[in-house]
């Protein structure tokens, strides 16, 4: 079997003396949509911070395309094609939509910036309409589109979406998950980190459940969706 795009093994890390992740193992294979699900405080954000290089691992390994990225800087990791769309969007509010997108190609795919901007505008016509508008004036849904668009500008090999559905209306959440499928169909591998269990399981090929800093359940979405413990804990069934 081919080497996974992302392989996390025995990852431990935290803040100060507080350990948050207590040995996380997960893998994402090329072409997959993998969901990491968990409630608030399970360690999802910490996992993302470690993978993107913002937070140093205490021990364990993070391998991306067969390269150890555990000690690399965020900018280097972005250069390799591992792009994260952070929780809370983190767009540049003082800059125009177009400038935000262009900065997505700051480290990677800079020569193809024009083409990629065109592709992003094709996916998100709203952003094309508002390209000269300051990003801070966009609605929450548009800001999420912009954050994803900025990520796509770097031609990601693996795109991590951190809580993309947070704060969106149900209608926009539907749209978002349709979009996730569309991006994946274009050949981009996706790691989806979400609290929205039901909809994530609908689009994912495989899923992991993170609880108290460790993976407690993994498998295909149907099995996970039918797991009695998960139903009780997350779906309120």
């Amino acid at each position: 079997m081919a080497e996974p795009v992302l392989a996390v093994s025995g990852l431990r890390t935290g803040y100060g003396a507080t350990e948050i992740l207590r040995g996380v193992d997960l893998a994402v294979n090329a072409g997959e949509i993998v969901a990491v699900l968990g409630s608030n405080g399970a360690g999802k954000s910490t996992l993302n911070r470690a993978i993107s290089g913002v937070l140093r691992p205490w021990s364990g390994a993070i391998r991306f395309c067969d390269i150890d990225i555990g000690r690399e800087k965020p900018a280097t990791i972005v250069g390799r094609g591992l792009i994260q769309v952070p929780e809370g969007r983190r767009i540049f509010p003082n800059m125009t939509v177009r400038e935000n997108l262009d900065l997505g190609a700051y480290r990677r795919a800079r020569p193809r910036r024009e083409d990629n901007r065109g592709r992003v505008f094709a996916i998100f016509p709203r952003l094309a309409e508002r390209q000269s508008q300051r990003a801070g004036t966009l609605s929450g849904g548009e800001q999420q589109m912009l954050a994803i668009g900025r990520g796509l500008m770097a031609e990601p090999i693996l795109l991590i979406l951190d809580e993309p559905s947070l704060g969106l209306s149900p209608l926009l959440v539907e749209e978002l998950f349709a979009l996730i499928k569309r991006i994946n169909a274009e050949g981009i591998t996706l790691l989806l980190v979400e609290q929205n269990v039901a909809q994530s399981l609908e689009v994912a090929h495989r899923a992991y459940i993170l609880e108290n800093g460790a993976i407690v359940l993994q498998g295909n979405p149907t099995d996970i969706g039918n797991d009695p413990n998960l139903k009780r804990a997350y779906l309120g069934l």
Binding site: S52, V54, P74, A75, V78, G79, I83, Q84, V85, P86, R89, R90, I91, F92, L103, G104, Y106, R107, R108, R150, A154
Partner: peptide, 8 residues
């Protein structure tokens, strides 16, 4: 943070 994650 947004800048860091954009590769800056």
């Amino acid at each position: 943070l947004g800048a860091e994650l954009s590769g800056i």
